[in-house]
């Protein structure tokens, strides 16, 4: 418990370093990329390379260094969970990217970022894969077991979404195992559950849309949502909309609302709505300020969202995307 309180206190110090809403507004209004980076430098972002890759590296470096500072000296399960949740998230993104590139027949070119070198499955390893098969074989050895099963399904149905869901299932299963085994507070479990549930809902919608069969969906869902009662996961596959909305209600009221609102406007909005529901939960925890690991997890999530948003705004500046479009994207999220 003492470690959790220590982490919560450290997380509060970390929360003070988060970008305020005015900073986003100022970034959006900044006429040039240079002014944007100058503004960000006041908040600790060091952007040396004004390219897309450089910007992404700077955002990720900032996030990972702050998380590193928070968990430094924290041994044991809470530190492990925080590490798995934050670093694992970045790793998952890279793995999904690599899977997509390899499935498309191209070699993966990861961002050259020194901060990512600490990841278990880092850019260096991912760039060595020549084909999808060797990549999956190596990743299975490194603990991505569901991905191995998903690869079998992929060979059967040819959908890259199955592979991506497999990799995500491994990430969430790892987080859930850590959260469940450490006798964490209910709020911590709820948070991990909400996160995986929102992604599960997304993949459920995507895979149902692609006409993926019941057996594959059930297997992957069970791996992704080990914390959910079996009756929620063991759904029929008769009417996707009814089932999805009933599952959404069972998981969380907010997610249900987000889903029903998002489905009509498309999958991008659905994804954004699900992320927003997750963000709302994180901000609720940040507001309540509980003295346990959930606060630190919410902080990590807030940092992750911040890094992604900074990357979005700066890449929009590089690509010359109008301010209104960036504002709309940020509002959706």
């Amino acid at each position: 418990m003492a470690i959790e309180i220590y982490l919560a206190v450290k997380a509060r110090a970390l929360k003070l370093k988060l970008l305020p809403a005015e900073a986003y507004e100022a970034m959006l209004r900044a006429p040039t990329f240079k002014e944007c980076t100058e503004l960000l430098s006041k908040y600790g972002y060091v952007i040396r390379d004004p390219s897309l890759e450089g910007v992404e590296c700077a955002a990720l470096e900032h996030m990972l260094s702050l998380v590193d500072k928070m968990i430094i000296g924290v041994d044991g399960p809470p530190g492990e969970l925080l590490r798995a949740y934050s670093f694992g998230r970045v790793e998952l993104e890279l793995v999904r990217d690599a899977l997509r590139s390899l499935a498309g027949g191209a070699r993966y070119r990861p961002p050259r970022c020194s901060a990512l070198a600490t990841l278990k499955v880092g850019p260096r390893l991912l760039s060595t894969f020549k084909d999808l098969w060797s990549a999956v074989a190596t990743l299975v050895e490194l603990g991505y077991r569901t991905l191995g099963r998903a690869f079998e399904y992929y060979e059967e149905v040819g959908s890259v979404a199955v592979l991506e869901m497999g990799a995500e299932a491994d990430y969430y299963a790892r987080c859930w195992r850590l959260a469940d085994s450490l006798l964490m507070s209910r709020e911590v479990k709820r948070m991990v559950m909400l996160d995986s549930a929102s992604r599960w809902l997304y993949w459920l919608a995507v895979l149902k849309f692609e006409g993926i069969g019941r057996e594959i969906l059930s297997t992957l869902s069970k791996c992704m949502m080990p914390g959910l009662p079996r009756h929620v996961v063991a759904y029929g596959v008769e009417s996707p909309l009814e089932e999805l909305s009933s599952v959404a209600r069972a998981v969380h009221r907010e997610l249900g609302e987000a889903f029903t609102r998002g489905f009509e406007s498309g999958f991008l909005v659905l994804e954004a709505e699900l992320l927003r529901a997750l963000w709302l939960n994180a901000t609720r925890i940040l507001r309540l300020r509980p003295i346990d690991l959930s606060y630190a997890l919410a902080c990590v999530l807030a940092l992750y969202f911040e890094a992604k948003n900074v990357y979005r705004v700066l890449s929009a500046k590089i690509a010359g995307i109008p301010e209104e479009t960036v504002r709309e994207a940020l509002q959706l999220l």
């Binding site: 897309l52 992404e56 993104e93 999904r96 990217d97 690599a98 997509r100 590139s101 499935a103 498309g104 027949g105 191209a106 993966y108 961002p111 890259v160 991008l268 994804e271 954004a272 992604k308 990357y311 979005r312 890449s315 929009a316 690509a319 995307i321 109008p322 479009t325 960036v326 709309e328 994207a329 959706l332 999220l333």
Partner: peptide, 19 residues
């Protein structure tokens, strides 16, 4: 452009390799 921002530039590029 909206999709580019929502999905992320790196992801957008890796998605494009599937086409």
């Amino acid at each position: 452009q909206l999709a580019y921002l929502l999905v992320g530039p790196r992801e957008f590029r890796s998605y494009s390799q599937l086409v």
